[in-house]
């Protein structure tokens, strides 16, 4: 049986991660309320947004489809850093991350059409950032890379300059924890890694 695998995410990085392990995946842009609710913990927040993204896409699909929604957040001192509003905000965020450890949480949800939840999981990675000089922050922001990324950096790009080490999944920091997603999809019979059939 061929299942359509659909990624409810506008992030090109997530698509690349899944394609890099050989999956064929379609992208449909989701809609979700990406503002934190009152008394929602960071983990609950990411899980809800991941679910809402997948759910928004799942409504219009036929029964042979499986939808993956994901949300990645950067957490420092229990504060959730989203995407920077502008360069000054990016400067502020990078200042918060400088010289210390923070956590990157990616929540993902796998749904069938009509919002039927098959699997939900959250993966956390600790990231240690070195001391950032003001000139480094300024120069990095000038590259434009921070502006569309949660926490104002991308570990897979130029932002690698500031990451001294991580504890946990690397792909989770990029935007999708690949082993965990594959394990879940395999268990659900939606993919077969290194499999002999066409998927």
């Amino acid at each position: 049986m061929t299942q359509r695998l659909i990624l409810a995410s506008s992030s090109p990085r997530r698509k690349e991660l899944l394609e890099s392990v050989g999956l064929t995946i379609e992208v449909i842009n989701p809609s979700a309320d990406e503002a934190m609710l009152y008394d929602e913990s960071p983990g609950e927040f990411a899980s809800r947004v991941a679910f809402e993204k997948a759910a928004s896409v799942s409504r219009g699909l036929d029964s042979g489809s499986v939808v993956i929604g994901a949300d990645t957040i950067v957490v420092v001192d229990d504060i959730v850093l989203g995407k920077p509003m502008d360069e000054l905000d990016a400067t502020r965020m990078l200042g918060l991350l400088s010289g210390r450890e923070h956590h990157v949480l990616t929540a993902f949800s796998i749904l069938r059409p009509r919002e039927e939840l098959l699997h939900a999981e959250i993966v956390r990675t600790a990231v240690r950032v070195g001391e950032l000089a003001a000139s480094d922050i300024e120069g990095y922001i000038k590259t434009g890379e921070p502006m569309d990324k949660a926490g104002a950096y991308g570990i897979q790009g130029i932002g690698a300059f500031m990451v001294e080490g991580i504890t946990g999944s690397y792909t989770n920091v990029v935007g999708l924890p690949v082993p965990e997603v594959l394990r879940a999809l395999t268990k659900l019979g939606a993919v077969r890694l290194f499999g002999s059939d066409e998927s």
């Binding site: 503002a35 001192d77 504060i79 989203g82 502020r92």
Partner: peptide, 10 residues
Amino acid sequence: KQVEPDVIAR
């Protein structure tokens, strides 16, 4: 205090 600018803007 401890509230991110995107939330304040909203």
